Simulated scan of single mutants.
Amino acid sequence: MNTLALPRLALTAGEPAGVGPELLVRLAATSLAANFVAVTDRALLERAAARCGVMIELIDDDGHDAASRPAGTLRVRHVPLAVEEVPGHPDPRNADHVLATLTEGADGCLQGRYAAVITAPLQKSSINDAGIPFSGHTEFFAAHSRAEVVMMLASPELRVALATTHLPLHAVSAAITPASLERTLRIVHNELRTKFGFTEPRIAVLGLNPHAGENGHLGREEIDTIIPVMEKLRAQGMHLLGPVPADTAFVPAQRERYDAVLAMYHDQALPVLKSEAFDRTVNLTLGLPFIRTSVDHGTALDIAGSGKADPSSLIAAAKMALDLVARRAVSSPMDGDRQDEQATPQGHP
């Protein structure tokens, strides 16, 4: 690839009846220095641009590099809809279209045609209503790439990874096993080094129970599972703090001590992150053999088609993808850990 060319970033529009198509055309209207390739239906983007009142030039993607992208232009890799969208009303007949866009984004990254994939929100229920078992972007990309992954949400101020994702609360404890927790911490540690450039990542591990179990009086998961895994990995050189009680983990004095947080379940830490940086938070999938970022919100069916959707989270996802692509570009794959050790750490005092 031409080193002077803009990185080719695949954009998937997610649920056609949601706000995703509108977000894509608003992102294309910015002057971000990226060669965006929308993987979706061309006419869907035209209708979204009309609803938003955005002037945009859609160009059929030829697969070639480009050194510049005028604001308001967007390359398109056409993936046809089965039926025309009705904003706010997902149609299961378009489930195959949605999955085809994800497949193209993943395969394009694996084959080197895209430097990263950025995903707009989709409607899981619509895909399941089509008779296709589907639990989300993260799980789809993991299965497609045959990779073990971890979900992370990140803002400029805070990074939160999850030991479990979309589980009912009663199932969380059983899902946190020594093997799963060790695997998760290893992935987070490795990705903080290789993707984010931390030479010695500091990870705060939250306890599962109130007050991190209070020495077993409020639960034994910390004593039986979390602490033994942390001690094992500390002995191998990882810098792990905790288990930290979740109710004090995010006070300013604590934040100075770590580069990322591992939360035990979805709603343990994400409300803090989203309450202070909702429009700047990005969803990342750690552990994939390619870069994937996403918005941190859903399809917003209630405002789909109104042209009022805020593109801030998608713009943040695109900026983070560009940062990660740039960091990868300055690291030689032949140098491995030696390059990681030379990377400039971020967020350390």
Rank of each mutant, 00 (worst) to 15 (best):
A321E: 12
V160G: 13
V282I: 03
S294F: 14
A34D: 07
V330E: 13
I187Q: 10
H166C: 01
N283A: 04
E276V: 11
T199K: 15
D267V: 04
L284V: 09
G105P: 01
P243I: 06
T293W: 09
L206A: 02
N215K: 14
H78I: 02
Q236T: 11
T164Q: 09
S68I: 12
H78Y: 08
L208E: 03
T73I: 08
D107W: 09
E84T: 11
L233A: 06
E84P: 08
M1W: 05
A120F: 12
T344P: 02
T285P: 02
E148K: 10
A179V: 05
D259F: 04
L23T: 00
T165P: 03
A143L: 15
A67P: 00
L284N: 03
V39R: 14
V25I: 13
I226R: 06
R338V: 15
E46M: 12
K319A: 12
L262I: 03
M264H: 06
E191G: 09
R47Y: 00
R26Q: 15
V25A: 09
F290P: 14
I227P: 02
R186M: 12
E104C: 10
L32P: 00
P243V: 10
H189Q: 15
P168Q: 03
S135L: 04
D41G: 13
D129Y: 03
T281N: 07
M320E: 13
G14R: 09
A95M: 04
F140P: 10
R93K: 15
L23V: 04
E256V: 10
E85Q: 15
E85F: 04
D259Q: 15
R234L: 03
T12Q: 10
A171Y: 01
F141I: 14
N94T: 13
G14E: 00
R193A: 09
N2S: 15
E139A: 12
N190H: 15
L314C: 08
L218M: 13
M264Y: 05
A212F: 03
V325P: 03
P16V: 07
S313F: 11
V229T: 02
A317E: 08
